[in-house]
């Protein structure tokens, strides 16, 4: 393994633990209310949208239709694995025909 990869993996392992530990160590001090807390709570949704939107929008009709169908399955079932399998089936089928 190259030094840069080893450094990245070590830093990631430390950061992953530090984020979880920080809630315990700083729990009394971190604002979980007010605007600072709200900003933290807005982040996960915003990051997921930012990750997914370009690959959907910059895709094509197959991606657009598969996204709508997958969202319907996700909304109905709320099942992580089920939705991932359904999404895989939709995009595979749509790319055959579109």
């Amino acid at each position: 393994m190259t030094p840069d990869a080893a450094l990245a993996l070590a830093a990631l392992a430390f950061a992953a633990f530090a984020v979880r530990a920080s809630g315990i160590l700083l729990g009394g001090f971190i604002p979980s209310t007010g605007k600072a807390g709200q900003l933290l709570r807005e982040m996960p949704g915003a990051v997921m949208v930012s990750l997914a939107a370009p690959s959907v929008i910059n895709g094509g009709p197959a991606e657009w239709l598969a996204t709508v169908l997958t969202a319907a399955v996700a909304w109905k079932t709320r099942s992580l694995i089920g939705t991932m399998v359904a999404g895989l089936a939709f995009i595979w089928a749509l790319r055959q025909v579109v």
């Binding site: 996960p44 997921m48 997914a52 969202a71 996700a74 992580l80 939705t83 991932m84 359904a86």
Partner: peptide, 20 residues
């Protein structure tokens, strides 16, 4: 792309977003 695996991540984010 041929197997649609690139879309699996999108599907995962969609279901997580539904919960939010």
């Amino acid at each position: 792309r041929r197997w649609g695996l690139d879309f699996v991540i999108v599907a995962m984010f969609i279901v997580l977003l539904c919960g939010r």
